[in-house]
Design a protein around this nucleic acid. Sequence first.
DNA 1: GCCGTTTTCGGCCCGACTGTTTTCAGTCG
Length: 577
Amino acid sequence: MENKEIARVLAETADLMEIAAEDSFRIRSYRNGASAVESNPDRIEDILRDPARKVTDIPGIGKGLAAVLEQIVATGSCDRRDQLLEKFPPTALEFLKIQGLGPKSIALIFEHFRISTIDQLETLCREQKLRELPRMGAKLEEKVLRSIAQYRVRSGRYLLSYAESMADELSAALLAVEGVEAVTPAGSLRRGRETVGDLDLLVTGPNATRALATFVKYPRVEEVLGHGENKASAKVGREGLQVDVRALPPESFGAAMQYFTGSKDHNVAIRTRAVRMGLKLSEYGLFRSSDDSLVAAATEESIYQALGLPWIPPELRENSGEIEAAAEGRLPELVELSQVRGDVHMHTTETDGRASLEEMAEAARQRGYEYVAITDHSKALAMANGLDETRAVAFARQIRERNREGSLGIRIFSGIECDILKDGAMDLSDDALAELDLVVGSVHSHMNLEAAEMTDRLLRALECPHLRILGHPTGRILLHRDPFPFDFERVAAEAARRGVWLEINASPERLDLHGALIRSAKAKGARFTISTDAHHPKHLANMRYGVTTARRGWLGPKDILNTLAAADFAAAIHAKS
DNA sequence: GCCGTTTTCGGCCCGACTGTTTTCAGTCG
């Protein structure tokens, strides 16, 4: 059992305990335990099996949770979770995803109405029954109905990072089959979409068909949906991600890759182009319409070439102008991960990060970066132990000192992620902000303002002379919270005018900005940074999702400030007009 | 339930908003 799954069981148990109104500190311990398990570099299952090692050596795991971990690894669940699932319906965990309902309200609804499904909850709201309960009213019913609608749209999709880890895991298992040469993910994962509906894996090799048999017997397959000669489908993992595995002959691999990578809109447009040229394109190859003779099939390059086009990077294949651009030879040069020279938004234990300044710097150095910016939270984020003026300035001095010593082996800029308050003012005084190398401004509160008010708020924030970067500009949390409404184009244009860069937040839960907005902002003259917002050294690896997202926004290295060398980046920070 | 002891219990535990209220519980970050 993988750490991520173990962590999920712990977190679910904590959720259920919360509905059952159990001791809040115990719940907190379960949550801490979940995050400790998830961020532990070694597999918990391996540690449990090794008599020489102890899980209790992991901070946050004591005797109690050690026993729980044993149980989870052995049975996939634990006693407390099982007991609570007898008391509450298994859908209780789904109810927690409905915004506006917390554990207390859910417990009350269960107790009073004896319902167990989201559909029943919807009915309650429509029939205006929720308001019978204390402290619940018409506004809440409306909010819950809106939230249920959003929930339905989201369920059935998965974060890019989750789909990628599943693809990696399955690829490794299938590559171990003799006679399998390559396993390649296609579909929206290959295009780098921020969420993925299902996973397509293309298998080649003399014995590719045998990979299908291995796949359907894979331990984490929950339900086999179909298993034929060339294709097998199954729901995999507790989350039930649908995975389609296809065995392909090498001679038509390129055509299949092209076909299964999509997007559907891109393919329709490409096939229309083929028809106009007297050709037809399918997953088996590109053929002459007149005599069905094969033109190209083995590689994607050969197919695009036969259609008079250069190869189009998968990130661009959304039929949003890429085919025209390719035909006219003006596809953009896209940024690559190796061109990123620094990560300029991250947190440390000074606020809510999980590693020290030294550990974050060292992790960044190991990734080959030239520089980092440490941007801990400001005081408005009290739960994160945000910095007030005094602490922010003192911490900046400490960072400068370490930087001067050169002992960390990497250049460090002192920064802050300063909250943008409800009225657009900065959370910290100008004097304090002036002490810092780099100010990222972010919205973390009051996200339900009217669009006009939110636009004014952001425009006012841009007036701050010290603001350099607008952090996660739309505030969305994928599959969880929609972007807050505001006039993006106006804000992007104003940011461009004032020389404030827009962040492409590489956290797989955010990917904010996303491709379409990036393109729109670039058209307004905006420039960008790609940053991970890391709260742990391992989060630095999320940079690749940010780069993929930037590529989906048609960005090249010149659009992105943290592809600059350290000295140039430093100059850019300080050369504010 | 974890942690850390001036070692076996006590601390952990913030702050603002919202909607429903007549003084505040619940949610959220």
